[in-house]
Design a protein around this nucleic acid. Structure first.
Length: 671
DNA sequence: AGCACGCCGACT
DNA sequence: GTCGGCGTGCTC
C-alpha cells in the first residue's frame, strides 16, 4: 500500500491544497494522473500525484483511496518540480501550472494518419560551412554538453549573422548523445523558414511542431508522441516550453527579447525563466539568441550568470544597412506637415525605380497618445517615474500611468514657449491611405493585426511580398520580426516616437529593439540596404545607438537609468490589479491591500509600493481597475510573494466578494 | 466550486 | 411543530 499527495483538478482557489489518499496500485508515481473520490458525494475527480510515501507520518481522518491510475498520461518528476516552482514564482494554483504540462484535448482515436507539418518542404540539408564566428560559438558550447553541465549562453548576434545554424549544430550534438531539445520561436506563423530548415535537417519523424492551429485531438496525439519518446526535437512558441520531453539537452529561445515569451494569462509565466529552470533540472544548456538582447539578459551576462557569445558579422558579408535619422522638427519648420519627410519620399521613389522593395514601419499603439511640443520636441514626463504622460481627453489632463500623478496640459511649451504643444498619433491605416495617394501606380499592402485577421492569413501577405508582387509593405512590429527577404532596399520608420512615448519604463529598450530589428530587414541580399528613422527626438540615446548599431552604448545608458529608478533588472516589478463594479470599492480595497502588504513585509518597505492608482485601461468589461506596483529588490522575493499570495488568496476565496484580484510578476505591459 | 450543516422566520 | 432561507465551513 502506498500513500499519495494529490492536487485535485478543480478550477478554484478553495481546493488548491494537497490531499492524501491511499493507493493500492504500485504503479503510482510522482506525476501520475489519477482519479479520486472527492468531498461528500465522493464524486470522482481527476487529480495529479505530487508526492508519494510508503508510510503515513500522522493519522488522517477520513482517508480515502485512489480510484484509478491513468495508464496513459503522467508528468515527469521534473515537470512536477517545475509546477511547484511555478506556483511560488508566479502566484498561481498548482492546477494552473499542471495544466501547462498536460494535453488539453483527448485522443482523436480514429487512428487516422497525421501529417506532422503539412507545408514543410524541407530545405535541403545544410552542409554550409560555418563562419569562424559560428564555429567558435559552437565550439564553446560543445564541451558543456559533453560534460553534461547546465549553462546559459546569450548569443548576441547581429541580424543575419546565422544564429539558426548554430542552434542546429548544437541540437545535432545533443541528439547525437541521445538527448532531446526544445526550439522556441516567438511566433510560429512568422517563422516558417526556420521550421523548414529544421525539418530539412532533422526530418519530420523526430520533430514535433506545436502551434495554435492544431486541433485538440492533434495536440493530444502530438503530446503523446513526445511523451512516448518518439520525438527528439520540439519546435514551438511559448507553450512549447512545457513539452513532455525527458533528458533534455538543449533549450533554444530564438529572439529571446520578444515579449511573446511572457504569458499574459494565468499562469503568467515567463518562458525564458521556465526554460532555465527546466534546463537546470535536466543538466541542459540554454541558448538565448537575439540581435538585441533584453536588458535583463545582458545584465545577467554581465554578472556572469550567463555566458555571452558575440557574433559581429553577417553570414553573407553584406554590411549592416546605412541608417539615417530624419529630424521631423526641421520638416515642420520647412512647412512639411505630412507624415513623409522629403528624404523618405525621395528614398522610396528611388527604390521603387530600382525595383527594390520598401517596408514602412509604424508601431501604432493607437489608443495611447502623448503630449508633445511640435516645435522643440519636448514631451511631458512624470517627474517621479521618468516616463511619458498620457493625454486623457475626458479629464483634459496628462496622467502618469505608473504612479498616478497628473497635471494640466500647459498652453505654452514649458521648454521653448512655443504654442504647438499638442497630443497626437497616427496609425498604419492612415499611412497606407497616404502612401496610395502618393504612389498610386504601385502595389501596396499592409501587415498588422487588422489585416492578418481580416484577410485570413499572414502567409498571403508575406507570400505576395516574397514574390515581389508587393512594392511597398506597411506594417506594425509584425514586419520587424524575422522576415528574411533579400530585395528590401529601404526600411522607413515613420515615427520612432510612438514606441518611445509609451508609458512604460521599457519604452527606450523597445524602441532600440524595434529600430534595430526593423533595420535588419533591409539589405539582406547582396546589396546594402538603407534605413530612415523619422523622429522628433533625433538626439535620444536609444535612436542614436540604433543608428550606429551600437548595442553596448545603449546598454550602458539604459542600465544606468534603470539602476537609478530601481527598475528591472535591478528589481522585480509586481503588479497587483484589483477590479470591482464600483470605482470607489476598487480604489478602497486597493488601498487596504497596500496597507496589508506593508504590514506583512514591514513599514520600511512602504516606499517600494506605488499606488493605488487607476490602471491605464481604467475600465474593462464594466469593472473598474486599480493597481499597485511593487518594486521587489533582490533578496525580498520570498517574503513579498508570501504576503502577496496570502492577500490574493483571502480576496479570491471570499464568497461574497465582488472583487477580482490579479497578480503579475514582471508584466510586459502595464495595461 | 459544490454540498451539508445549522440557526432564524413563515407556514400547514 | 417543521419547511426552507442562505451564512459558514470543509473537501484527504
Amino acid at each position: 500500500m502506498k500513500y499519495v499527495n494529490v492536487v485535485i483538478d478543480n478550477n478554484t482557489d478553495h481546493t488548491d491544497n494537497l490531499y492524501t489518499y491511499s493507493c493500492a496500485d504500485d504503479n503510482v508515481r510522482v506525476g501520475s494522473k489519477v482519479t479520486v473520490p472527492f468531498a461528500m458525494g465522493n464524486r470522482i475527480k481527476e487529480a495529479y500525484v505530487i508526492q508519494t510515501a510508503d508510510q503515513l507520518t500522522e493519522e488522517i481522518k477520513g482517508l480515502k483511496a485512489v480510484d484509478a491510475v491513468d495508464p496513459e498520461i503522467s508528468l515527469s518528476e521534473e515537470a512536477v518540480a517545475t509546477c511547484i516552482w511555478m506556483k511560488r514564482q508566479y502566484l498561481c494554483r498548482y492546477i494552473d501550472a499542471i495544466k501547462c504540462f498536460t494535453p488539453a484535448g483527448t485522443s482523436s482515436k480514429r487512428g487516422k494518419i497525421r501529417t506532422p507539418y503539412k507545408d514543410a518542404t524541407g530545405e535541403s540539408s545544410g552542409g554550409k560551412a560555418l563562419t569562424p564566428e559560428q564555429k567558435n560559438a559552437v565550439e564553446s558550447i560543445r564541451p558543456v554538453i559533453a560534460a553534461g553541465e547546465h549553462n546559459v549562453f546569450l548569443i548576441h548576434g547581429v541580424t543575419g549573422s546565422g544564429k539558426t545554424e548554430i542552434y542546429m549544430k548544437v541540437i545535432e550534438e545533443c541528439i547525437g548523445r541521445g538527448r532531446t531539445a526544445i526550439m522556441m520561436v516567438p511566433e510560429i506563423s512568422l517563422t516558417p523558414q526556420t521550421i523548414d530548415r529544421f525539418i530539412g535537417r532533422f526530418g519530420t519523424e523526430q520533430i514535433a511542431v506545436l502551434h495554435s492551429k492544431l486541433s485538440l485531438g492533434e495536440r493530444y496525439d502530438e503530446w503523446m508522441r513526445i511523451r512516448r519518446g518518439e520525438v527528439k526535437i520540439v519546435i514551438g512558441a511559448r507553450s512549447a516550453i512545457f513539452a513532455p520531453l525527458e533528458n533534455i539537452g538543449t533549450i533554444v529561445l530564438d529572439e529571446e527579447h520578444e515579449t511573446t515569451y511572457k504569458s499574459d494569462m494565468t499562469p503568467k509565466y515567463d518562458a525564458v525563466e521556465v526554460a532555465i529552470r527546466r534546463a537546470k533540472k535536466n543538466h541542459a544548456v540554454v541558448l538565448l539568441g537575439s540581435a538585441t538582447p533584453s536588458l535583463v539578459s545582458s545584465y545577467k551576462a554581465e554578472q556572469g550568470e550567463y555566458h555571452k557569445i558575440l557574433l559581429k558579422e553577417r553570414y553573407n558579408g553584406t554590411p549592416l544597412p546605412d541608417v539615417e535619422i530624419v529630424d521631423m522638427r526641421e520638416e515642420l519648420k520647412q512647412g512639411n506637415r505630412s507624415i513623409f519627410s522629403v528624404s523618405l519620399y525621395e528614398e522610396i521613389k528611388k527604390n521603387l525605380a530600382e525595383k527594390r522593395q520598401v517596408i514602412l514601419f509604424l508601431n501604432r499603439r493607437g489608443y495611447s497618445t502623448f503630449v508633445s511640443c511640435r516645435s522643440c520636441g519636448y514631451v511631458m514626463k512624470c517627474k517621479e517615474c521618468g516616463i511619458s504622460l498620457t493625454y486623457h481627453k475626458s479629464r483634459n489632463e496628462a496622467v502618469c500611468h505608473f504612479c498616478g500623478h497628473s497635471e494640466k496640459v500647459p498652453v505654452l511649451c514649458p521648454d521653448c514657449g512655443g504654442k504647438y504643444i499638442k497630443h497626437f498619433g497616427t496609425g498604419t491605416e492612415k499611412v497606407e491611405e497616404m502612401t496610395r495617394e502618393i504612389f498610386p501606380d504601385y502595389n501596396i499592402d499592409r501587415l498588422d493585426l487588422d489585416t492578418t485577421t481580416k484577410k485570413g492569413s499572414i502567409d498571403k501577405i508575406l507570400n505576395s511580398f516574397r514574390k515581389g508582387k508587393t512594392n511597398i509593405l506597411i506594417g506594425t512590429q509584425l514586419v520587424a520580426k524575422g522576415l528574411d527577404f533579400s530585395n528590401v532596399g529601404l526600411v522607413g520608420i515613420i515615427s520612432a516616437d510612438i514606441t518611445l512615448n509609451v508609458p512604460d519604463f521599457r519604452s527606450a529598450e523597445r524602441t532600440f529593439q524595434l529600430i534595430t530589428q526593423a533595420a535588419g530587414r533591409a539589405g539582406r541580399g547582396d546589396r546594402r540596404g538603407r534605413v530612415l528613422i523619422q523622429t522628433y527626438h533625433p538626439d535620444h540615446y536609444a535612436i542614436l545607438a540604433a543608428k550606429d548599431h551600437d548595442y553596448d552604448t545603449f546598454y550602458q545608458s539604459e542600465s544606468l537609468l534603470r539602476r537609478q529608478l530601481g527598475y528591472p533588472p535591478f528589481s522585480d516589478l509586481m503588479q497587483v490589479v484589483l477590479s470591482a463594479e464600483k470605482e470607489k470599492d476598487a480604489l478602497e480595497l486597493c488601498r487596504q491591500i497596500a496597507e496589508e502588504f506593508i504590514r506583512g513585509v514591514g513599514e520600511e518597505e512602504r516606499r517600494y509600493v506605488l499606488g493605488p492608482q487607476a490602471a491605464p485601461m481604467n475600465k474593462i468589461k464594466g469593472l473598474y481597475r486599480y493597481q499597485l506596483l511593487i518594486k521587489c529588490f533582490p533578496g525580498k522575493r520570498k517574503a513579498y510573494t508570501k504576503v502577496l499570495n496570502n492577500i490574493r488568496l483571502k480576496i479570491s476565496t471570499d464568497r461574497n466578494a465582488k472583487y477580482l484580484i490579479s497578480v503579475d510578476v514582471n508584466p510586459y505591459s502595464f495595461l
